[in-house]
């Protein structure tokens, strides 16, 4: 149990009726959470891909005469402190949020899986050393560390993605390692070793395919956290730099205008909330679908 919560992800799955027999896609479509979350995510993805045609204005076009206008037909979500259209900026902001969210999680997963598989497979001192390394990372408050690192080393998009991705690897590494440990005693691993498969082959051909469900679930649940992290850094002025509009940055922009222009902070934050809820819904649902009994946390 301790292990589960520590990995910091989301909650224990509920014991829902097992529907193992049906094919995967049927089970996925049958899961309300996956469907609801995925619908929102797909819509967001579409907004990101077609931002150019969906957004009514250029997100960076300033009309200084139209600063801080409330929601109207012309600007459904109002305008900001430089007279830019908030709706257009929210739409374009999906790119940063999804982009940073998914790419940083990809990094998390690659590093986490690598370390987790290596530690679990090798065992012994290698495992001990790698896990102590993971423990070191786990005991540092991640957001503070990121704030320091990004402030010091600057915030270009690629670095930012790398930093956020790296900062989350310990949780992923632990989960993967635990799964590898549970797979190691299984017969097919022993069989592969007996017929002389190299360790690399065992890891890639035999272990990895069996890790896919847990990796997918864990990755999905981490996307939301990564999006929130980027937004938090943007709030402190350290996120993705302009001209790309970012939701966290927009919320921060609105701080000084809470009284005169509530819409500047409110809508991007709402968008953030909805997208993160959606990723968590999908993650929860996937976990139920893949492995309802196991109750793994992220």
């Amino acid at each position: 149990m301790a292990e589960r919560v520590r990995s910091g992800g989301a909650p224990v799955a509920s014991l829902e009726t097992v529907t193992r027999r049906r094919p995967l896609w049927r089970r996925l479509l049958g899961n309300q959470r996956v469907v609801a979350g995925a619908a929102v995510l797909l819509a967001t993805l579409a907004a990101a891909l077609f931002a150019g045609s969906l957004a009514p204005y250029d997100p960076n076009a300033q009309t200084l005469a139209d600063r801080l206008l409330g929601p109207t037909a012309a600007h459904p979500l109002g305008s900001d402190q430089l007279g830019r259209d908030v709706l257009s900026r929210v739409i374009w902001g999906t790119r940063v949020s999804l982009g940073v969210g998914f790419s940083s999680v990809a990094i998390t997963i690659v590093i986490g899986t690598g370390i987790g598989v290596a530690a679990g497979y090798a065992g012994g001192w290698v495992d001990g050393l790698l896990m102590r390394f993971v423990d070191v990372f786990l005991s540092i408050p991640v957001f503070m560390l990121l704030l320091t690192v990004v402030a010091i080393y600057g915030s270009n998009v690629n670095l930012l993605i790398a930093f956020i991705g790296i900062s989350a690897f310990p949780g992923a590494a632990r989960i993967v390692r635990a799964d590898v440990l549970s797979l190691m005693p299984r017969e097919f691993i022993a069989a592969a070793r007996v017929i002389g498969a190299t360790p690399a082959r065992v890891m890639v051909r035999h272990l990895l395919p069996n890790l896919v469900p847990i990796i997918v679930v864990s990755a999905t649940l981490r996307v939301g956290a990564a999006i929130l992290t980027e937004a938090g850094l943007s709030y402190f002025g350290l996120g993705v730099p302009p001209p790309a509009p970012t939701w966290g940055g927009m919320v921060a922009d609105g701080r000084a205008f809470l009284d005169v222009a509530w819409w500047v902070s409110t809508f991007p934050g709402l968008a953030l909330l909805v997208v993160v809820i959606a990723t968590n819904l999908v993650g929860d649902g996937l976990r139920d679908v893949f492995d309802p009994r196991r109750q793994h946390l992220s």
Binding site: G154, G237, P241
Partner: peptide
């Protein structure tokens, strides 16, 4: 001048 680099004060 579209290339802008927004950094924290210390940087």
């Amino acid at each position: 001048t579209s290339k802008v680099d927004v950094v924290d004060f210390g940087t």
